[in-house]
């Protein structure tokens, strides 16, 4: 465990807590893509298949349970909570995310570390996480304005992935046995997807203006 990875995990945790806060505090999920949250729930479930078979550390197990639990809570809220579900932008959140699931699964069948059930689902979850934000970014572009909690949510998600890249660079130089190309390449693709959002986020922060994404 190094500081970059710990910081990355904390940013990831904060991003999910910000989202939960927004939903519980405002009893609204406007501007949030349910499809992205469903993709994240699938990412965590398929990545943490070793939750009950391999014990790595208390921290690792606790964080996995928190990520699965909080994302499941967000998906549940957006679909079943009587008040929250009314504010879901159903007609704007139309990204066909099943294609993302299919494409990532096919890719995982070809590109993986070992051809085992757990490894294929792990690679699938890595690829899916890279593109899971797409429905959310599309929704933000369609809804034009970005309310600051949702903006912070995407910001912290980007920070989490950026720190993970620093973590891989650190591990590459510090550990002789470092081969996590699937995570690295997929993580780079994922962070690149955030880059344009970061650019507009920074502009809005610099001009102290409302974050406005070009349609």
């Amino acid at each position: 465990m190094n500081i970059f990875r710990f910081a990355g995990d904390m940013f990831h945790l904060i991003s999910i807590l910000v989202l939960l806060l927004k939903i519980y505090a405002t009893k609204s999920c406007s501007g949030i893509s349910l499809k992205t949250q469903e993709l994240y729930a699938l990412v965590f479930v398929t990545r943490y298949l070793d939750l009950f078979t391999d014990f790595i550390s208390v921290y690792n197990t606790v964080m996995k349970l928190v990520f699965i639990g909080s994302t499941a809570a967000i998906v549940w809220c957006m679909q079943w909570h009587p008040v929250v579900k009314r504010s879901y932008d159903r007609e704007l959140d139309t990204f066909r995310h099943y294609f993302l699931v299919g494409a990532c699964f096919v890719l995982a069948l070809f590109l993986h570390e070992n051809f085992t059930f757990q490894e294929i689902f792990w690679a699938f979850s890595i690829y899916l996480e890279a593109v899971a934000i797409l429905p959310q970014l599309v929704l933000l572009q369609r809804s034009g304005n970005v309310d600051n909690l949702t903006g912070q949510y995407v910001f912290f998600l980007g920070a989490y992935r950026a720190f993970y890249i620093l973590n891989w660079i650190y591990r590459y130089f510090m550990e002789q046995r470092f081969s996590r190309w699937i995570s690295c390449i997929s993580g780079l693709v994922q962070t690149a997807l955030y880059a344009d959002f970061f650019y507009y986020y920074f502009l809005s922060w610099k001009n102290n203006a409302k974050l406005h994404l070009p349609a």
Binding site: D9, I56, S57, E113, W122
Partner: peptide, 10 residues
């Protein structure tokens, strides 16, 4: 501690 573990990252 984590040698040999494939995926110690979250």
């Amino acid at each position: 501690l984590l040698s040999g573990k494939q995926h110690d990252e979250l």
